[in-house]
Amino acid sequence: MYKDMPAKKLDKRAIRYERTKDIIESFFTLAVFVLLMFLTIRFNWPIWLMAIWIVLPITDFLLSLFLLPYLKLKAVRYEMHALHLEVMNGLFFKKRTVIPIERIQHVVVKEGPLTRKYRIQIVEVFTAGTGHEIPLLLKKEAEELRIQLLDQIKAVKSDV
């Protein structure tokens, strides 16, 4: 697709985090479909709807458990260059963003309870108009990227 794709890929250990997150989200989906089953019985909706209310959450769960984590692992890439940061993401529609170092205003490293358990962090890079996210980096890798970005920003700012 691209001649020179960004070199850095996500670590395979991020799959465990993605699976856990997707399973938790699937329980919320399941709750919605259980409610729909109850409403189908309560209001005498067509019985064929019950098949849909059963098949859809099972399909969602199986996709979330087996397919989507691997696709996301392959979809996110990034690379730090001397004058810009390149980020590529998107499962089906690929988006490639080049962020000039001189435009970066600040860098944020985010983590929550689940990401902390799996030692994963999300690096967010902010420019004047937008924020760009590099998800699912190992803690060590996220910290190295943050330090590298801050060093690059200092070098570019001192040259001006």
Results as ranks from 00 to 15, higher is better:
144 E>G: 01
59 T>C: 15
122 I>A: 14
75 A>V: 03
129 G>R: 10
76 V>T: 13
152 Q>M: 05
114 L>P: 08
64 S>A: 11
111 E>D: 15
116 R>G: 04
72 K>Q: 06
150 L>W: 00
91 L>M: 07
152 Q>V: 00
73 L>Q: 09
134 I>R: 03
122 I>C: 14
92 F>M: 02
128 A>M: 13
133 E>Q: 13
66 F>R: 00
78 Y>A: 06
92 F>I: 11
66 F>Y: 08
135 P>G: 00
116 R>N: 13
101 I>H: 11
103 R>A: 09
109 V>R: 08
61 F>I: 01
146 R>S: 00
136 L>T: 12
110 K>W: 02
104 I>S: 03
127 T>K: 04
123 V>S: 02
94 K>G: 15
65 L>H: 01
139 K>I: 05
115 T>P: 14
150 L>K: 06
106 H>V: 06
98 V>M: 15
85 L>Q: 08
95 K>M: 05
101 I>T: 10
105 Q>V: 13
103 R>N: 14
87 V>Y: 07
83 L>F: 11
129 G>M: 06
98 V>R: 15
69 P>A: 01
93 F>L: 09
121 Q>G: 15
120 I>E: 06
140 K>C: 09
75 A>D: 00
128 A>S: 12
105 Q>K: 09
86 E>F: 05
109 V>A: 09
132 H>Y: 10
61 F>S: 03
68 L>V: 10
138 L>A: 09
97 T>N: 12
100 P>I: 04
111 E>I: 02
127 T>V: 01
120 I>T: 09
116 R>Y: 05
139 K>T: 08
79 E>V: 10
156 V>Q: 13
64 S>H: 03
87 V>F: 07
121 Q>V: 08
147 I>C: 00
104 I>R: 12
127 T>C: 02
116 R>V: 02
149 L>W: 02
138 L>R: 14
151 D>L: 00
134 I>Q: 04
110 K>Y: 10
156 V>K: 15
60 D>Q: 10
125 V>L: 05
126 F>R: 13
67 L>V: 12
104 I>D: 03
125 V>A: 06
149 L>Y: 02
90 G>H: 04
65 L>C: 04
148 Q>A: 14
153 I>H: 03
147 I>S: 05
62 L>A: 04
74 K>M: 14
111 E>T: 08
84 H>R: 12
115 T>C: 08
123 V>H: 01
80 M>P: 11
130 T>C: 13
69 P>K: 03
